[in-house]
Design a protein around this nucleic acid. Sequence first.
DNA 1: TTTGCATACATAACATTCTTATGTATATTT
DNA 2: AAATATACATAAGAATGTTATGTATGCAAA
Lengths: 119, 119
Amino acid sequence: MYICPMYSSELLKGTLKTIVLNLLKDNGRMYGYEITQRVKDLTAEKIQITEGALYPTLHALESQGELQTEEVFIGKRVRKYYTLTEKGQSTAKEKVNELVDFMNTMKFLLDLEPRTGNG
Amino acid sequence: MYICPMYSSELLKGTLKTIVLNLLKDNGRMYGYEITQRVKDLTAEKIQITEGALYPTLHALESQGELQTEEVFIGKRVRKYYTLTEKGQSTAKEKVNELVDFMNTMKFLLDLEPRTGNG
DNA sequence: TTTGCATACATAACATTCTTATGTATATTT
DNA sequence: AAATATACATAAGAATGTTATGTATGCAAA
């Protein structure tokens, strides 16, 4: 049985906040576990966000005023929903733009395609 | 005067080895300082490889058998040229493929373009 | 000629950002 | 009843950078 390989994990570094902010921008509100599953599904398990990385990141984004939370009881269990603040919405856009620009620069640097309008 | 901003440095993490291996694949042989300048020039200073990151990386790649060195005297100064070993050549290709695949997955995940043939 | 900047290597202390491991608890499926 | 999935959280450790520092040569400008 073939196991689709994950990326060597260093590549993910630095992109986690961008992924989280962008998912929340597209989906309105999500809770932590849901984010891990959504990313796994969307990437055919190539990118798996670990809980040890995600929860501290969510807490950091909240304390920086990018996210706000809402606790909802599902039976006896608390589920913590996150939504973007206004600040978070503009940060999301900036982060995505920066990442796209970075990827274009990388493709040019790796001699994979001509430079597009990002010099 | 406008200063073209660098990327927030986390993004570079994990891509340094790929950059180095690919530059050597394209250019035959290069020395450390030359690599920092080439990257700076090619990216309009958006990506600046620090020496504190580069030299340890070069040493690691050499000790892993990806690179071999050749010392050349320029006047009284030693310059250390690096070239890819055979292992390094195949690693270079793998690393670039992985990075390209990762970037495509990221663009899909960020809902920027339809998935291409990498699922 | 000496002052500063560029070239060219190197390493160590520190910061950031993950992974791995562990803990707690409820809900659902077998 | 046991295993798996859901759902949160934190701590120790690893990996990979930045910043600071050190050494030394070469060259250009004041």
